[in-house]
């Protein structure tokens, strides 16, 4: 009885649309006039030949492979530093590093867009320090625009992951750390051989959450770079939105793309669980 409202809503708002999306992905047509495609997997076939789709997959994986490991390592180091009982101003550090989480994705995307403008803050600072002679067109070139998105993601999410690690570390037995110290292990050895192995389940969880989030990236692609230049920073979800709700909506094709995202999330989570769950 108590479960009914939640179960019904999750069913109607998640499972039912998920099934519908699959059926939809087998149909073609514009607007509301949709018919089953011939062959049924036509939309999926078409995706394989869609260069923009391939580019968005590539972009998403560039973000994933570069950003997620860097972020998790920095978050681990920060959490380890903050877990030190002798550290001063602990609350101040934690609040400052956690603060970006309070800002919405659209908001921070626009702030980053402003500071990485050609005549913006970052170029002014780099030129002031004589690192560069002329301003860099950060958002106008593929490589630098991707870097800006990665920096943005790092800025927004590192503190978030740090809090997960910090919570896990506080549940650790502090005596294991003391024991390592008494045995003569330095801070690096203690961190690597004592703390990290005990945090394994949490690292796995954050890896899955971050992967999941990056594959569904939308707000940054839309607001920070608008997918440009020439689709080279566009995320899969951004392309999905463009296909489904802009210009000439094609729900069937969009649904096929959305199913590719679903399958990617599932496969990557399965891989991570397999790798992360190994006991030594």
């Amino acid at each position: 009885m108590f479960l009914l409202p939640a179960a019904l809503l999750i069913g109607a708002m998640s499972f039912y649309p998920m099934a519908q999306a699959f059926i939809l992905s087998l149909k073609t047509g514009r607007g509301t006039r949709l018919n089953f495609a011939d062959p049924l997997w036509y939309n999926y076939q078409r995706l394989l030949q869609d260069d923009i789709f391939k580019l968005t997959v590539q972009n998403t994986f560039v973000y994933l492979i570069i950003q997620v490991p860097i972020m998790l390592v920095i978050a681990l180091i920060l959490a380890n530093l903050l877990n030190d009982r002798n550290l001063r101003f602990k609350g101040l550090w934690r609040t400052a590093i956690f603060l970006p989480c309070a800002v919405g994705l659209v908001s921070y995307s626009l702030v980053f867009r402003t500071i990485f403008a050609t005549d913006g803050l970052v170029n002014d600072m780099l030129m002031g320090l004589h690192f560069i002679d002329s301003p860099i067109n950060w958002l106008g070139q593929t490589g630098t625009a991707r870097i800006v998105i990665i920096l943005g993601l790092l800025w927004r999410w590192t503190g978030y992951n740090m809090v997960f690690y910090l919570a896990a570390m506080q549940n650790l037995d502090y005596s294991t750390l003391e024991a390592a110290k008494i045995d003569g292990a330095g801070p690096f050895k203690t961190f690597w051989y004592v703390t990290v192995p005990q945090l394994r389940p949490m690292i796995l969880l954050t890896a899955i959450l971050s992967t999941n989030g990056t594959i569904q990236l939308f707000d940054e692609s839309w607001n920070l770079t608008q997918g440009g230049p020439a689709y080279t920073t566009m995320s899969m979800s951004h392309y999905l939105f463009e296909l489904s709700f802009q210009k000439n909506p094609n729900f069937g094709y969009g649904a096929a793309l959305s199913y590719v995202i679903l399958i990617m999330v599932a496969i990557l989570a399965a891989i991570q669980m397999k790798v992360g769950d190994k006991r030594d």
């Binding site: 708002m13 998920m18 489904s244 989570a269």
Partner: peptide, 27 residues
């Protein structure tokens, strides 16, 4: 039985919003 139902509901956590967006809009 409730444990089993919970496991099914937790599966929904893995469904990306992108995959439900178009049918939700239609609905």
């Amino acid at each position: 039985g409730k444990d089993r139902l919970m496991n099914v509901l937790l599966l929904a956590m893995m469904i990306p919003f992108a995959a439900t967006m178009i049918p939700l809009f239609q609905l």
